Simulated assay, not measured.
Amino acid sequence: MAEIYQKEIKLSDYRKEDLIKFYREMVKIRKFDEHLIRLMHEGKVSGFYHSGIGSESVSVGSITNILRDEDYIFYNHRGCNQKIAKGVPLSKIYGDFLGTVEGTTRGLGAGIVHSADPSRGVLGQCGTIGSQFNIVVGTAYSAKLRGTDQVSVCYFGDGAASREPLHGSLNWAGLYKLPVVYICENNGYAISSTFEETHSVREHLADWAWGYGIPSCVVDGNDVLLMQEVVKEAVERAKLGEGPTFIEAQTFRHRGHFEGDAYDYVDKAVLNDWKENRDPIKSFKKKLLENQYCTENDLLNVDEEVEYEIHAAIKVAENAPLPEPNRIFEGLYA
């Protein structure tokens, strides 16, 4: 069955610039999120938003310095985290939410499940939760047929994992040894239902992969360096033709399922513990400072630089025009 992934990691195993990069990327994702929520409160964003605050390390640890532009990702319900880590410009993502032509869809998208950036391997997803399970075997099978070393990474939550398409996808990927890395961002809740209420498996979701002959493990998703190590190993396996890997990254969301969700179904003491003691950014910052890899001033400068970058991106997105009315007929062939 699935093993608990543990590995002794020394900061000295990484270059200082990479450690700072991990911190910067996590801060960028969180600040993006906080400012998008602000724009929603200002009435500038239509539709729902599903915040990824609290799980930034899952995306940064699994993408930064590992995946290339030619590697594919299918993001999950809180996928802005993954899109930012994959390199999609902030102005493009803000443009999608603001509905301006700066967005990846040039004004046709409406946020999270309607944006993509094929130039960076971000292939989006369909509106139905779990639909990426079906698509990822297609891109992975294509890479295998073409003889490339491209890897397809499929992100999903524990809620999406309860849908049947996961099992068909695992069976196909396991049967043909496809270059897929499944990353389950298990934050314990499917909307307001707990993991125990929605899954028959009692221990770990990763146990399911064992039944399809797929190596699997459970990892602390809030440890960015553990995520780096486990995903690097999985990607290397995929590139060598050794098939898929299933990674269950345990984390927790700091906000409700969607903006406006009262989030009163979570015990306040539990939520506070995750925020104060298991926050991925706070934990990594503490580790960097305690090991004297940087100073408070160094990290403050990073925070300020990212804040400036965020404001500049919002300005670009806001100043871009809305699409012309005739754009609605693009892609219409009937």
Rank of each mutant, 00 (worst) to 15 (best):
K7S: 12
I9F: 10
E17R: 03
K21G: 10
R24V: 04
R24W: 05
F32G: 00
D33C: 03
H35Y: 08
I37Q: 02
L39G: 10
S46Y: 11
G47M: 00
S51W: 02
S51L: 01
I53V: 10
S55D: 13
S59R: 01
G61P: 02
N65T: 06
Y72P: 04
I73E: 03
Y75G: 10
Y75Q: 10
H77C: 01
S91D: 14
G99W: 09
V101M: 07
G103N: 01
R106S: 13
R106T: 11
G111P: 05
I112A: 13
I112T: 14
V113F: 11
V113C: 11
V113L: 07
S115M: 15
A116H: 08
R120C: 02
L123Q: 08
G130L: 01
Q132Y: 05
T139H: 08
Y141N: 11
R146L: 11
R146T: 06
T148P: 09
D149N: 11
V151I: 04
V151L: 11
F156P: 00
G159S: 14
A160Y: 02
R163L: 15
E164T: 15
P165Y: 04
N171W: 07
W172D: 14
A173E: 13
Y176E: 11
Y176D: 12
N187M: 07
S192G: 08
E197F: 12
V201P: 00
V201T: 14
A206K: 10
W208C: 15
G211C: 15
G211Y: 14
G213T: 07
I214N: 01
P215Y: 08
V218F: 01
L225M: 06
M227N: 02
M227Q: 05
K232S: 13
V235M: 03
V235G: 04
E242W: 09
Q250N: 15
T251L: 00
R253Q: 02
F258Q: 10
D261S: 01
V266G: 03
D267I: 03
K268E: 13
N277Y: 06
D279S: 00
P280I: 03
F284D: 04
L288N: 02
Q292G: 07
E296A: 11
N297A: 14
L300E: 15
Y308H: 14
A313I: 02
I314W: 11
E318F: 14
N319G: 15
A320Q: 08
P323Q: 02
N326M: 15
R327M: 15
I328E: 15
L332K: 15
A334H: 14
